[in-house]
């Protein structure tokens, strides 16, 4: 069952629970509850979304705000540039590419590290598991700004790890062994010392840190339900630890694994703070561009809205792809 199915099932159950009571009065009450629920969904979800969609077809008035219109100029600007066909630019497509590249790398990094951690966690005592889960939920409640600030300090060139590298002589050692040049090639060093800001490594690291607790919490139910005797059975048949992981544990949790990766990916498409702090401006993402156009110097709300719609469509496309993959994986081979 996919996450979306799960949610639908939950909603259905909730609806049944609300509708279940018997008398006509209760029936009327449940109708009222339905009306209120749907009104809330409309007011808080659908209307803002529709507004963004409508504004994305609006027209920007130079030196002023924007006016209602039905123009495709914002979409044209995104895909080929405003002055097409005279000249074309792939600036905004490039930003979408970076959005996806960061989101994919960070989601994969988080999953790859969270999976073994969560597996080992589920083999602990109930008490230890509870402590870990509470701790992880607590870190989730930290704001993105706060976490990014922490990483900013750790990775900053003057007071963080690079300073530690220089002071401890690690930088000199790297220069002697030739690794320093390799790091320079990777954009992780300036002529004098290692540097992490700006860099893709720091961006992906921070992004994956942000979603890591979600990865653990999303993988936890599936892994804790995994019957330990499956792994033990494999061991009695000659499977070493790696073979057990590859042939038993991974295939058993492939559905939640796909689902979790997709959720993290979609969540990361909208990341903003970490990108502005750690990514090189030439590698900024669509989310950053949306903010700059809506709130920043240009005040071009229609173009910002168009970019939002494109980001949303991208996310939806990936969720549908995930659904398809999940169904394919669930189907008996």
């Amino acid at each position: 069952m996919s996450v979306a199915d799960d949610l639908a099932y939950g909603a259905e159950k909730a609806a049944v629970a609300i509708a279940a009571p018997k008398a006509a009065v209760v029936g009327r009450v449940s109708l009222a509850v339905h009306v209120v629920l749907w009104a809330a969904v409309l007011a808080f979800c659908l209307v803002p979304l529709l507004l963004v969609l409508i504004i994305s077809f609006g027209h920007k008035v130079e030196g002023a705000g924007w006016e209602w219109a039905l123009t495709l100029e914002n979409y044209k600007r995104f895909f080929v540039g405003a002055n097409w066909p005279a000249e074309s630019t792939s600036l905004y497509l490039g930003q979408l590419y970076w959005s996806m590249r960061y989101a994919v790398s960070a989601a994969l990094l988080a999953i790859v590290t969270a999976l073994p951690f969560t597996y080992l966690m589920t083999r602990q005592s109930r008490r230890a598991q509870a402590v870990w889960l509470v701790f992880l939920l607590a870190t989730v409640s930290l704001s993105e700004v706060f976490s990014v600030m922490g990483w900013d300090i750790i990775l900053s060139n003057n007071s963080g790890l690079p300073m530690l590298f220089a002071a401890s002589g690690l930088t000199d050692w790297l220069k002697e062994t030739g690794w320093f040049d390799v790091l320079r090639d990777w954009g992780l060093a300036n002529p004098r010392n290692v540097k992490f800001k700006p860099s893709e490594v720091a961006t992906v690291l921070t992004l994956s840190y942000l979603v890591w607790p979600y990865a653990v919490i999303l993988l936890y139910p599936a892994l804790s339900r995994l019957d330990p005797s499956l792994a033990e059975a494999a061991r009695t048949m000659g499977a070493g630890p790696w073979t057990v992981a590859r042939t038993v544990i991974l295939p058993s949790v492939r559905l939640p694994l796909i689902g979790t990766t997709l959720l993290l990916f979609v969540f990361l498409l909208g990341a903003y703070v970490a990108i502005t702090v750690f990514a090189d401006p030439s590698q900024h993402t669509t989310a950053v561009s949306v903010y700059e156009h809506v709130r920043g110097s240009t005040l071009n709300a229609p173009f910002g809205a168009a970019q939002s719609v494109i980001l949303l469509v991208t996310a939806t496309a990936f969720l549908l792809l995930g659904q398809w993959l999940t169904r394919k994986a669930a189907r008996p081979s």
Partner: peptide, 11 residues
């Protein structure tokens, strides 16, 4: 070894 739950691999 045959386990109490049989521990057959569902995949």
């Amino acid at each position: 070894m045959v386990f109490q739950s049989f521990a057959l691999f569902p995949h």
